[in-house]
């Protein structure tokens, strides 16, 4: 149900309106997913609603990805941020949760709230609500980040934010850091013919090709089984199919549940206890924001995947 162009399981649901029945609610959720899919198919490059007019002085973020990047760009950029996405402090989604000062407003669903902050740059994602974007596009410079399908999109988005915020040098340093860490992880992974299969299982959904998990798993030294079997984006997968594919390793997210409980909950599900990965204890638990991130911490995900793999390899 996730747009193929988005590797992160974030969807800004909006405009639920007044619904009076379950069927209409279901239709609404379906329509939202379709509209988000269409929105994600618009183009490849990031877009701005108006031509760039030099470095922004008052920056507002409407995506958790931009919350993370703006924090990582350093204090000079942080000081110019006047608004953050509502998920900036949510430890289930944001890898910078709790770092932004409470005095920086978190901007909700109402565009008036954003405009009241008088930003001169607003960073949104292609899957942000179209109504919201339409309400602000002719009043403020809007940077629309189109794709979030892994490492390449991260670097492209980082460059866009760096340029729009006048922090090209800081963005360049982040890029170099990312490239170097990626190279180090890739150098440590097992040879191609010894790379085991892996699947990330989340509420019955799995990330296939064109996802941040796919890039992270490949960098760590795994073969993302869902991608190898032809799945693209985040897809629902039948438990029977998971058992039939029988990945050597399995990844589960933890956050709402402690990691140990997430592991035992997986093993308790009918059929899944018989997976080789479960029987051999090859379950990797990852805190939820690292599975969700489309930012620099995709490499932290790769590192957390690689550590148990190298440990098992060394035995």
């Amino acid at each position: 149900m996730i747009p193929p162009a988005s590797s992160s399981p974030f969807i800004a649901l909006s405009s639920l309106g007044s619904l009076s029945s379950l069927s209409s609610l279901g239709r609404l959720l379906l329509a939202l997913c379709i509209s988000l899919t269409l929105a994600a198919c618009r183009g490849d490059a990031a877009r701005e609603s108006t031509a760039a007019k030099g470095p922004a002085k008052r920056i507002a973020s409407r995506t958790v990805f931009a919350d993370e990047v703006l924090w990582q760009l350093g204090e000079e950029v942080q000081a110019r941020v006047v608004g953050l996405s509502p998920m900036a402090d949510d430890a289930r989604y944001s890898t910078v949760a709790g770092r932004w000062p409470a005095s920086t407003p978190r901007v909700g669903q109402n565009p008036e709230e954003l405009l009241a902050l008088a930003p001169d740059l607003v960073i949104v994602a292609s899957f942000s609500a179209p109504e919201y974007r339409a309400a602000i596009e002719d009043k403020v410079r809007v940077l629309v980040l189109e794709d979030f399908t892994g490492f390449d999109d991260y670097l492209a988005n980082l460059a866009q934010i760096g340029e729009a915020s006048g922090a090209t040098e800081a963005a360049g340093r982040m890029r170099d850091r990312f490239v170097a860490r990626r190279a180090k992880l890739e150098a440590a992974r097992p040879p191609v013919d010894q790379r085991p299969t892996i699947i990330a299982w989340d509420y019955g959904y799995v990330p296939g090709a064109q996802t941040s998990f796919d890039d992270a798993a490949t960098t760590a030294g795994f073969v993302n089984l869902a991608a190898r079997e032809g799945l693209e984006g985040h897809q629902r997968l039948d438990a029977e199919q998971l058992v039939a594919w029988d990945p050597a390793w399995i990844v589960v997210g933890c956050g709402e549940l402690p990691c140990a409980e997430a592991r035992s909950k997986l093993a308790a599900q009918p059929g899944l206890g018989k997976l080789n990965a479960v029987a051999q204890g090859q379950i990797i638990t990852i805190p939820a924001p690292y599975l969700a991130t489309t930012g620099e911490d995709m490499l932290e995900l790769a590192a957390r995947l690689q550590a148990p793999l190298l440990g098992a390899h060394a035995k």
Binding site: L13, S18, S20, L22, L29, D90, R92, Y203, Y205, R236
Partner: peptide, 24 residues
């Protein structure tokens, strides 16, 4: 009851996992 579901989802619009689970 339908409206109650809608209100709950509307209050947690930014929680992707909730929408995913509810839809499934």
């Amino acid at each position: 009851a339908g409206a109650a579901s809608t209100v709950i989802l509307a209050l947690f619009l930014d929680r992707y996992a909730l929408a995913q689970k509810a839809m499934a």
